[in-house]
Nucleic acid binder design. Structure first.
Length: 421
RNA sequence: GGAGGGGUGGCCGAGCGGUCAAUGGCAGCAGACUGUAAAUCUGCCGACGAGAGUCUACGUAAGUUCAAAUCUUACCCCCUCCA
């Protein structure tokens, strides 16, 4: 990684300083190229899921930075390529989605991006395109003749991403093998139609990106650039973005802002500073001062991290809810939960409270995966009502009035509110 | 097309007729310790059931057997070598 170097272009300087830069083609030329505002660069997204998740955050913030420095981000949805599936470094062949599923995913993914990028028609406004618009219409023979001839199979099978699939107990289908050709063609198409001269991507996309750069050079005699970012891993080398419930999604519907905030609040000490650089708008000097912090002070930095990234992702309004909720859940001696708005709730009929066991509530509310799971937790003293450990014979007391609220916790971090009605 | 090897729980990987809901590792969850962190130690980790137990699972489908993840057959998929 390049860090100390300074560049002519402000974008490159900041991208490098914040840890977004892994490698690029022709660094000198791209630096020069980016000194002029209004350049266009694109990033392709797979649309296999309904929402983007934390793993997409680096490229998203990279585009955001690109826009901040006066350039125009193009988001390319892989409506066409998703029908094939990128084989790069994946050990399993991707499920192939139908057109309907892709259409649904496409629109919800766009709404995931809106908080991060300003879309519109002005010079540095982002635009979103779908490669199905041209890939679906390709004709095989003309494509082979006009595009395919520029690709050397000898070279393609030399790429690390392909080698991995070719050696282990893996298989690479012919259609998957074509993925990189199509991705290269996307770049070509965007270059011709939209004057797009940079492709962004994760470092695992390097091979695919270079293919596009080469295609454009050979076919148009034009120099365009590739720029990759490092992949987001935790300090222990794991991929970031997984929790008990699955991926950390960026859409409110799939993961509440409260849980989203909690994810960042709980990151490993060793990752905090790195994440501050990547995912907040605090300036580089400010973050630099935090690098030496330890212990409780570093713990507080996590709150800043969680706040900043939540505001960017879910808006300032949801942060207030998150804070109230967190305070209600963690720092609340009086058990007053009126402010804890975003915690899941379970409504219990007053008349029915005698018949419903704690195990039922835990399973029905989704707090535990099954009744057995709930019982195990109870046995292990991991269940609390208003912060008091309870056993599996716990019943909601008879003398509580309608409207009373109890906090039910699994472990120290997962909570729901039981509301009597 | 031929020969051989293989498909086991979220992942890796043992098991190769009963003692197998399936060793072990990773991941995950909880407890202790802490800072809503890490590391460490302890417990849990298919579903249902208060429990005895019942059900569902070892690529898919049939079969042999009192009994199958383990044997047979067909099919599907993957890998390696040959043509």
């Amino acid at each position: 990684m390049v860090s100390r170097m300074t560049y002519k272009s402000s974008f490159l300087n900041e991208a490098a300083a914040r840890g977004f830069f892994y490698q690029s083609t022709n660094l000198k030329a791209i630096d020069e190229f980016l000194t002029v505002a209004g350049r266009r660069g694109y990033l392709g997204f797979d649309i296999t899921a309904k929402s983007l998740h934390v793993g997409h955050l680096i490229p998203i913030f990279l585009l955001r930075l690109f826009q901040k420095h006066g350039h125009r981000p193009i988001v390319l949805a892989g409506g066409g390529t998703t029908k094939i599936g990128d084989p790069s470094f994946k050990d399993k062949t991707r499920p192939i989605l139908t057109d309907e599923e892709i259409a649904v995913n496409l629109s919800s993914i766009k709404s995931c991006l809106v908080p991060f990028l300003k879309f519109g028609d002005r010079k540095s406004d982002a635009i979103m395109l779908n490669n199905a618009d041209w890939l679906d219409k390709l004709e095989y023979i003309p494509f082979l003749r006009d595009i395919g001839k520029y690709f050397s199979v000898n070279r393609m099978i030399g790429f690390e991403s392909v080698k991995a699939k070719l050696t282990a107990n893996n298989s690479l289908s012919f259609s998957e093998f074509n993925y990189m050709v199509l991705q290269a063609y996307d770049f070509y198409e965007l270059c011709v139609k939209k004057d797009c001269c940079i492709q962004f991507g994760g470092q695992d996309q390097w091979g695919n990106i270079v293919c596009g750069v080469e295609l454009i050079r050979k076919k148009l005699g034009r120099e365009v650039f590739g720029f990759t970012n490092p992949l987001l891993t935790t300090s222990s080398g794991q991929k970031m973005g997984k929790t008990a419930k699955g991926a950390v999604w960026l859409s409110k519907e799939m993961l509440s802002p409260y849980e989203f905030w909690q994810y960042w609040r709980n990151v490993d000490d060793a990752d905090v500073i790195k994440l501050m650089y990547l995912f907040t708008d605090l300036n580089v000097e400010e973050i630099k001062k935090m690098e030496s912090l330890e212990g409780q002070e570093l713990n507080d930095v996590k709150k800043i991290l969680a706040d900043e990234i939540t505001v960017i992702t879910h808006g300032r309004d949801s942060l207030a809810d998150v804070h109230n909720t967190a305070a209600g859940m963690f720092e609340n001696a009086e058990n007053d939960f009126s402010s804890a708005m975003t915690v899941p709730k379970y409504y219990l009929k007053r008349s029915n409270s005698k018949n419903i066991s704690i195990v039922d509530i835990m399973a029905e509310s989704g707090l535990c995966a099954s009744r057995g799971d709930a019982k195990r937790l109870l046995r292990g003293n991991g269940v609390y009502i208003n912060d008091e450990t309870v056993a599996d014979d716990y019943k909601v007391p008879d003398d509580l009035p309608v409207g009373a609220t109890l906090k039910l916790s699994c472990g120290k971090k997962k909570h729901i509110l039981i509301i009597l009605e």
